[in-house]
Amino acid sequence: MSNELQTAATHTESLGNNQGSTEPMNEATSGPKIIDPVFTLEEVSVSYGKYVAVTGVNLQIPSNDITAFIGPSGCGKSTLIRTLNRTNDLIPGASVAGKVMYHDADLYDSKASAVEIRRRIGMVFQKPNPFPKSIYENVAFGPKVNGRPKKSELDAIVEKSLRGAALWDEVKDRLGASALGLSGGQQQRLCIARSLAVQPEVILMDEPCSALDPIATLRIEELMMELKKEYTIVIVTHNMQQAARVSTYTAFFVTEVNPLGDLRTGKLVEYDETRKIFSTPLDPRTEAYVTGKMG
């Protein structure tokens, strides 16, 4: 057993599955060779009731890097990113088939705790959703629900997280003010700070900039480049320039008409290094999309 896998095993112990296989699974999936991936998806399908929203996804997501999901709207990008921290559990009727591995733990193992998973794998939503509390309380929320930190510890966590999200200088004099009074871009950085405060390993971002103006978007992108040194980031974006600017790997999805019926189902078309996806894509549909001829 290699040293890396051992750390991965201890890292995921409390998810409830540490006796799982420690064999590398790179062979089973297509796309780029990724060493010690954070996520490994094998034949993943997600359904809402009988409707299959996305199917047959195989991919691996590297650590400390940014992976982008792109594709036309409705192809299941949000659905897929939500399965990575079991946010889909909250939708009645949503179900996941196939295997979603986080390091060597099965996220959908019956013993895995969704609460613990979401603590380790944070999420930033499309629309900034600060709580109707002060800036300070927004950031302190995660640490508070995960334990009983002392006031001094909490102060330190809040400052560190706000600095981490490049928001500290703008709000340090008004930590007690309502978070709802911040601008959209600030609110989104607050939401990022809020997720940093629980020290996750992964941050999932579902179109984090789609409600923001170009300058605020740029700041979030800069922030993501900074964050990837310490965190694994998966981002859904409909903005191809954004994917090209920030991500190292890109997965391109489309909707295909299901041969069994008239329903449309999302499919992963191509997954590779971002520069290859944008310069020498293998699939003509990818090329059409990245050159703006489709979508």
Partner: peptide, 26 residues
């Protein structure tokens, strides 16, 4: 708004904590 609940759960809050600390006060 359901987004409060989603936000709280995404931080590792239990459903009960999300309700007690966010939904109830709102």
């Amino acid at each position: 708004p359901p987004s409060y609940r989603e936000g709280a759960l995404a931080l590792g809050a239990t459903p009960w904590q999300a309700v007690w600390r966010l939904v109830l006060p709102s």
